[in-house]
């Protein structure tokens, strides 16, 4: 199957005063995939996405969306008509209702999309007549996604769609994004949440200090940069392991961590402890947190800061 390239970026650079926000990055986004740009705050994610959304002008490099070179300002409106954008920290008009906000943006696109259908699609029926200012953070994000769909876009940009949301609202937003993915939308996601990128994306690009440090599917990234899997054993007699020549690390008094590379090693560990009913076994697979840690020596906290 030949993938159509929706976004093509080559050598993109953007500087503010003397600091380089985006430094010679190149990548492509294919039609129908959920593509995530992952990185801590200040990594250059939003600058990159805002250049693609025609909100910022690059200093250097080539940016093509649907094959249209964004250097041609006159053609930017053609791109704008085909994309849907939910910017970072999105807000709509406080004193308009949910439905009125949707109608407002529909008029801007001269779109034929039924606001009623869209309201049902994103689960806003009960809130459709509520003033935007009275909505909870999660519902506001939902409205943001609905507004970004008002022109039936071929390409959807979601910039930090769950930043600041509580876990339940985050899960609801994820489900909505999954539904959009099932409908075949191309989604460009920027996030600092590892779990979000891992849960939703087909491909991830990790960006740090304006540079791309790694890219691939979540599994590829974990495979290549996540490090080894490990088994965590609680209440385990260390002698059994020593008798079988299994090397281990002691995390705490009752907890042992054993790193393994393949299923044969895993089987050997499990067979050693399987007769002891007191042993609690947990198999730990590396995730994107480990990927990021291994690549940068730092972790991203909930606020999006790399520490």
């Amino acid at each position: 199957m030949i993938n159509n390239i929706v976004i093509n970026i080559e050598g993109l650079t953007k500087t503010y005063d003397k600091s380089t926000a985006v430094d010679e990055i190149s990548f492509t986004v294919n039609e129908g995939e959920v593509f995530a740009l992952l990185g801590p705050n200040g990594a250059g994610k939003t600058t990159t996405v805002e250049i693609i959304e025609c909100l910022k002008t690059p200093d250097k490099g080539k940016v093509e969306v649907f094959g249209i070179d964004l250097k041609d300002k006159k053609k930017q409106n053609d791109v704008k008509r085909r994309i849907g954008v939910m910017p970072q920290n999105f807000n709509a008009f406080d004193w308009l209702t949910v439905k009125e906000n949707l109608e407002y943006f529909r008029e801007l696109y001269s779109s034929k999309v039924s606001t009623d259908e869209l309201i049902d699609r994103v689960g806003l029926r009960k809130k459709m007549n509520s003033m935007y200012k009275t909505l909870s953070g999660g519902t506001k994000q939902r409205v943001g996604i609905a507004i970004s769909l008002i022109n039936e876009p071929e390409l959807l940009f979601l910039d930090e769609p769950t930043a600041g949301l509580d876990p339940q609202a985050r899960r609801e937003t994820w489900n909505l994004i999954r539904e959009l993915k099932e409908q075949g939308k191309t989604i460009f996601l920027t996030t600092h949440y590892m779990e979000e990128a891992q849960e939703l994306s087909d491909r991830i690009l990790i960006i740090i200090e304006g540079k791309i440090v790694a890219g691939g599917s979540p599994n590829e990234l974990i495979e290549n940069y996540g490090g080894n899997k490990s088994v965590i054993l609680k209440n385990c007699n260390k002698k059994i392991l020593e008798d079988r020549g299994i090397k281990y690390e002691t995390d705490t008094e009752n907890q042992i961590q054993i790193i393994f590379d393949n299923n044969e090693q895993l089987f050997n560990i499990l067979s050693a402890v399987t007769n002891d009913p007191n042993v609690e076994i947990e198999i730990k697979k590396p995730n994107l947190d480990e990927v990021f840690l291994n690549l940068t020596g730092r972790r991203i906290n909930a606020e999006g800061l790399a520490k």
Binding site: C54, L55, Q88, N89, N91, A92, L108
Partner: peptide, 13 residues
């Protein structure tokens, strides 16, 4: 400040 202008700028307005 609250991002409405940014959102509007992504539309054909």
């Amino acid at each position: 400040k609250n991002g409405v202008i940014k959102k509007l700028a992504t539309t054909p307005l």
